[in-house]
Each structure stands twice: as C-alpha cells, then as structure tokens.
Design a binder for these strands. Structure first.
Lengths: 213, 213
DNA sequence: TGTACATCAGTGAACGCGCGTTCACTGATGTAC
DNA sequence: TGTACATCAGTGAACGCGCGTTCACTGATGTAC
C-alpha cells in the first residue's frame, strides 16, 4: 500500500479536495487491519480528517462505499491477472502458471480488496458495474483456459468454462485457506504458491493437457 | 435447523435451565441470517429471553461464544464427513465422492457453522480445543486420501498430504464461491456438486488414480 | 425428614461509548455577464 | 477585469440507538447434618 499516511495531513483548507479517494483508502486500511466488518463510516471520516457528516456527500451509505471498493478491487484484479497472462507468452502453460501466482499474490498483497470482493457479503448482482467488473476479472481466467484448451485436439478437448471454474475454485480455496496474512490462515508445510501450482499441474494432466511423465 | 422457535418461550422460571445451549442456537440463527459480523451478545440474550448480563455467566465474551460455535461446527463437520466416507465403502472412489458431496452439503445446510469455522476471523490457533477439532475434521479428508493413494503402486504413488490439501482447497473454493445460500454466491450453470465432482475426477485422473478413458 | 447454608444462575439498572444520520449552516470555487 | 450569484463540499452540533460491561442484588437449587 503506497498512499501517504493519514489522509488528513495535507488538507488544503475548508475543502478536502480528494475526499472520495481518501475515504476509499481509509476503507482499505481499516478492512486490512480489522476485517470487512471492522470498518465504519465514522472511523473512515476520522481517518480522512473530516467531520462524520462529510462522507455522505460522496456515498449513499456504508454499503455503497464497500461496493465501490469491491468494484475497484475487481478492476485491479483483472489488470493483475491480465498482466500475468501476458497474452499467453512465452507459452500458454507458463503464462497460466503465472496467472495462478498472480491470483495468490493479489490475495496476499491486497487482503482488503480481496475481502471486499469475496467476503464482505456484498451482493455482486445488486450493482451492475460491480457485476461487470467481477465478470471481466473472471474473463481473464476464462480466456486463459480457452487458450489452453485450444491446444488440445478437438475430439478430446475439455470444456473450457468448466476448466476455468475449477481453476478459480482451487485458487480461491488455496488463497482463503492458506494464502492470507489474516488470523484465519491455516499453517501449511509449503508455500501456497507451490501448493496451487502442483494442484494445477495435476489437474491439467488429468485433462490430458500435460503429458504424463 | 431443528430447534424450536425463540428460546425464551419455554422459560420455566427464574433459571433458564439451558442458557448456554440456547445462546449457541441464537448465535447460529443470527449468523445464518446476518453473517458472522451480524451477531451481538445483546441480541443473543434477547433471543434467549434473558437479560443482557446473563450470557456472561457462560461465556467470557462474544469471541468465546463464536469460538465455541466454531468448535462444535468442526465436530459436526467431522461426523458428517466421517459418515460420508463410511470406512471407504462400497469402494474408495465412491466413498470419496460422497465425502465431496457431504462437504458441500454441510456448507449449504449449516451456513452459520461454516461461517463461524472459516470466515469469522477466529484464530484457530488461539484455542487448543478448537484447533484439535479442526484437525480432526481435516483428518477425515487425510484418511480418505491415504486410502485412495494406497491403491496406487508405490513407485507412482502421490503424496497423500498434498492430495488432501488440494481436495480441501477445491471443495472450500467451490463451497464459498458457489455453494451457499448467501448474498455472496455466484451464479453457476450447474449444481456445485457436479462442478466439484468433475473437478475431483479430473484431479484424480491427473494423479493416475483413475485410468484415462 | 427437615432445616441451614453455600452456591449457582439469573435480574435490572446503570454507565460510557461509538455509530449512523439529520440539519441548518458556511467557506470555497466556478462561471455568466 | 470585476462582480454577483449559483453551486459545491465541507462543518459542527444534535439526536436516538444499541452494544458491551459492571454491579449489587436475589430467586432457585443442591447438600450436609
């Protein structure tokens, strides 16, 4: 996290100038430290150095702010996965592996976004933009799976939607059980990246995408 | 959920008689309806029909109650998985499949327990009994994986700890992304059971446990 | 079998606290002319 | 270029509310003799 200190420090006068943005950073900071439930409008306002009524100029209520955080999280997530996939270079399997690492890296480095996206109880369907952002992030997994599947002769080509859902579930499972800095993390005799990578390899072998050694 | 109505209905007099138990049921009801954050000591007391000071006779604080719910959840979960595994009958693979179904069934039928176990931010390591209960539940997956692996010739036998962790992560991923009645559930073009079952089959084929068709 | 007493499991009133939300307000900013 | 005015983005005080927690207390229960 790279924003600078408490948002109130550089107040330029009566107007904050960037309150909307600052409130979102406050939410990320509070969620990261106290979990998705440990975030209040009042404390976010304090963090930003404004009165407790000020946030209402920018967000209808607490849920609207969280939904916004989740939406931005999905956008960052999409960018992050897209970058890791890198158009399938140098080759599809290596790029796919990078996507897996990026998934876990995001969950670890941005636990607040990850919480808001998957654990805050935000109904993804309640907000169009949010749902679309979530779909675009998933679409990267889908595209990568498509590419991987396309390398297989048609008569034994696996359904790529199913494959992408499996990869998503496995990644999410590893991330939430073992891959976070949180209190809820389970101990593991290996880095989560290795666990996920091994799981993906076994899975791809099961699909006949990787030859058995 | 089978307990009868609001706990306060059958008060027999000054003493509640079964307050500890009733508070736990209250917690389950509240968590199921409002998520792990939407549970308060005060409301649990109201639900049970006692004064707000009464719960302190039975639990140190809110966290102690949640930890107790989580512990009992793991115990039920263990029983549930154990029953599904059924000693590996009629054969290891069929039993393994039943364990997967039981996993998802538990997450769906007991969302409150599942939340308390995996999403309430309870530090599993902070409480010895809780950790042991969690380990016993996982041990069922471990045992099942051992049995499956034991059927493979030693020279290409997969490490069963890894296998059990993969299965756990995949099951948890499917359950938390698609398998709950919650607001956070994602839409899916098939029942979560099918998705998990297909994933497990692909995975087992990747391990060489199931022959490729 | 009865009684005295210890212990247990509740009561209910009180406290300080922080949250969400509203309100009339005011300082700052932008723009039309 | 200056001025009048509309609009925007804040203030700060106030409100009701529910929570967590403590406290001295009391009704109910169990047990020793």
């Amino acid at each position: 996290m790279s924003w600078s200190g408490k948002g109130g420090d550089e107040r330029r006068g009566y107007h904050h100038g960037n309150l909307r943005e600052t409130l979102i950073q406050a939410a990320l900071d509070l969620i990261a430290r106290k979990g998705p439930g440990g975030f209040t409008f009042a404390e976010a306002a304090r963090w930003a150095g404004v009165s407790s009524a000020a946030p209402y100029r920018h967000f209808r209520d607490r849920d609207a702010l969280i939904a916004d955080v989740a939406r931005r999280g999905f956008e960052l997530f999409e960018t992050c996965l897209e970058k890791a996939w890198n158009g399938g270079r140098p080759d599809a399997l290596a790029a796919f592996e990078q996507v897996g690492r990026a998934y876990l890296g995001f969950a670890r480095d941005e636990p607040a976004y990850y919480s808001a996206m998957f654990e805050a109880g935000v109904a993804v369907d309640s907000d169009l933009e949010l749902r679309q952002a979530a779909e675009r992030a998933f679409a990267v997994l889908r595209k990568a799976s498509d590419t991987i599947c396309a390398g297989v002769p048609a008569e034994r080509r696996p359904p790529s939607l199913m494959m992408s859902l499996h990869i998503w579930a496995l990644s999410h499972g590893v991330a939430s059980l073992f891959g976070r800095g949180d209190a809820g993390r389970r101990a593991l005799p290996m880095p989560p990246e290795e666990l996920l990578e091994a799981g993906v390899w076994v899975y791809l072998r099961g699909l006949g995408i990787i030859a058995r050694e």
